[in-house]
């Protein structure tokens, strides 16, 4: 790095060009960057809000929804959507290629939402052996149609 300084009148003939020694700065930066890269977490964490079907916060409206929606997860990778209230109905969503048919679930919930527009929440239940990741997958899909998901089965 060359820094030119205007010649002073007193020392007009002396060259004042000099080089900064930045090797030590580079060393420090290398150590710092290595440390920060080693300790950095590159995972992006997100949060899913969930309530419980019993207890929790007070409802925001006094009017109950037309129907209560309950989504159950079974060990055979099938969903059961139960409606109770104005209408009582049970919809079975069979597994697709041995896995959860999440699109089928979304389609069924979309149908419920189209019919009963005031429905905003669903209760999610699962059998004891169902893994958490499957609950989250079902929750994510349910939230795309019904924004409030409560966990049930307590």
């Amino acid at each position: 790095m060359s820094i030119g300084v205007l010649n002073s009148p007193a020392k007009g003939h002396q060259s004042q060009d000099f080089e900064l020694n930045i090797t030590s700065i580079i060393d420090t930066f290398t150590v710092l960057i290595t440390f920060m890269l080693a300790s950095a977490s590159f995972l992006s964490i997100g949060i899913f809000d969930a309530g419980i079907s019993a207890g929790g916060d007070a409802p925001t409206t006094n009017q109950p929804p037309s129907v209560n929606v309950e989504v159950s997860l079974s060990h055979d990778h099938s969903f059961t959507v139960k409606l109770s209230g104005k209408v009582t109905n049970t919809i079975h969503v069979a597994p697709k290629s041995g896995d959860w048919d999440l699109d089928g679930l979304a389609q069924q919930l979309g149908g419920v939402k189209a019919r009963f527009t005031d429905v905003q929440s669903a209760t999610l239940l699962a059998e004891n052996t169902i893994e958490y990741k499957d609950v989250i997958r079902a929750m994510e899909k349910t939230r795309s149609t019904l924004p409030y998901v409560l966990l049930g089965g307590f």
């Binding site: 964490i45 949060i47 969930a50 309530g51 019993a54 929790g56 893994e131 958490y132 089965g153």
Partner: peptide, 28 residues
């Protein structure tokens, strides 16, 4: 991610019994 729902239920029930009813489930 492999936690069975039975364990999750017990944990959430224990939390709810102490007034922790607003669950925030962390995901990647």
């Amino acid at each position: 991610q492999k936690t069975p729902y039975s364990t999750l239920k017990s944990v959430l029930a224990s939390a709810a019994s102490q007034g922790y009813t607003d669950f925030k489930l962390a995901v990647v």
